[in-house]
């Protein structure tokens, strides 16, 4: 844990944004291992793929466009420091009332949690309690989450997609091709690896019931494989393989699949997202429902992450052009 603080302080001190972004990646990985040590395997999985993977990637892409050095600001940080110290002191004073770490009888570990732990296997039939709570008991939350990430995808699309020029595409191509001849080993190795990454994503997707994993992690891993491909073989090649409008369509299909499961369960006489009515046997219905909505989450997340990356990446050529003008 002290490592985390060290890395965070280094982030404050450094001016080079490239190093800062890499440190942010290390920070994400460190917090992921911390989550493993605190028994939160699902969370660690997600944090490792998001914090250390996708966020760092997006930051690097942004830095490629905006320049890597940070200017020293003129104003004094003293006021900010005082505010931060006072708030911190108050918060530490507040922690004195907190239950101590690992307490079985703390308020957070009583009430509804006991029911999840004792009865969820009877009701849902899924070994991984995190999956059953995520997809079934708190299905509304997860639906909201999918809608949020879908909205973010739309937002990025709206902000970055227009006013791209055809000429830039060909320019990027020539840069890409010259780069690719140099990295022959990397290209061949990752060409072998990509199918395995995709397979692993599918494994994580359908194994979420029994072990850590699920739709979200699978979606991010799937997108990572596609992004790796795009980085090595150039945007235009990747764009030819994966059609942009196809990706956008499937992002919507993912969200609709989730919502559709809810509507179908309503039409069959249950509540929204009540999977018991989907099959004759309630537990089988729950299984089916969870499988379908995890699939919806996986598709939506993978496609949105691909959309976000493609839009950022195709922007690089454009803004460096803008700098010259």
């Amino acid at each position: 844990m002290a490592f985390l603080v060290c890395v965070a302080i280094a982030i404050v001190r450094l001016k080079d944004l490239f190093a800062v972004a890499m440190l942010a990646g290390i920070y994400g990985l460190l917090s992921a291992s911390l989550f493993v040590s605190m028994d939160a395997v699902d969370v660690a999985f997600t944090e490792a793929s998001v914090g250390a993977g996708i966020s760092t990637l997006l930051m690097l892409t942004t830095i490629a466009m905006t320049g890597r050095s940070e200017k020293t600001s003129g104003h004094k940080p003293l006021l900010a420091l005082t505010v931060v110290c006072v708030t911190g002191a108050l918060l530490i004073y507040a922690t004195l009332d907190m239950p101590s770490y690992g307490d079985v009888n703390s308020a957070a570990n009583l009430h509804v949690v006991q029911r999840y732990l004792n009865d969820s296997f009877m009701e849902i039939g899924v070994e991984n309690i995190v999956t059953s709570v995520l997809a079934s008991y708190r299905g509304f939350d997860t639906f909201g989450e999918v809608v949020v990430i879908f909205t973010a995808g739309i937002g990025v699309l709206a902000l970055l997609s227009f006013s791209r020029r055809e000429k830039d595409d060909s320019e990027i191509d020539s840069i890409n091709e010259s780069m690719h001849e140099e990295h022959l080993v990397v290209r061949i190795v990752s060409k072998i690896l990509i199918p395995f990454i995709l397979l692993f994503a599918l494994y994580v997707q359908f194994h979420g019931d029994f072990g850590p994993g699920g739709g979200f992690q699978a979606g991010v891993i799937f997108a990572a494989a596609i992004i790796l491909y795009a980085m090595l073989f150039g945007m235009s090649v990747a764009r030819r393989v994966i059609n942009q409008s196809f990706v956008q369509l499937f992002a919507a299909v993912g969200v609709l699949l989730y919502g559709g499961v809810g509507v179908v369960s309503m039409l069959s006489g249950g509540n929204f997202l009540d999977y018991n009515v989907l099959a004759a046997d309630p537990v089988a219905g729950q299984h089916l429902g969870i499988l379908l909505i995890e699939l919806g989450v996986g598709i939506a997340v993978a496609m949105v992450v691909i959309i976000i990356f493609f839009n950022f990446a195709s922007r690089i050529g454009f803004s460096s052009e803008g700098d010259k003008l």
Binding site: I54, V133, L134, E145, V148, T151, F216
Partner: peptide
């Protein structure tokens, strides 16, 4: 360990990815 907090944070991480990207 408490599965409920894990679920909440799982959702929060996804939202944090969305806000970062935006």
């Amino acid at each position: 360990s408490n599965p409920l907090t894990h679920v909440l944070i799982l959702t929060a991480i996804v939202v944090s990815l969305a806000t970062t990207a935006l």
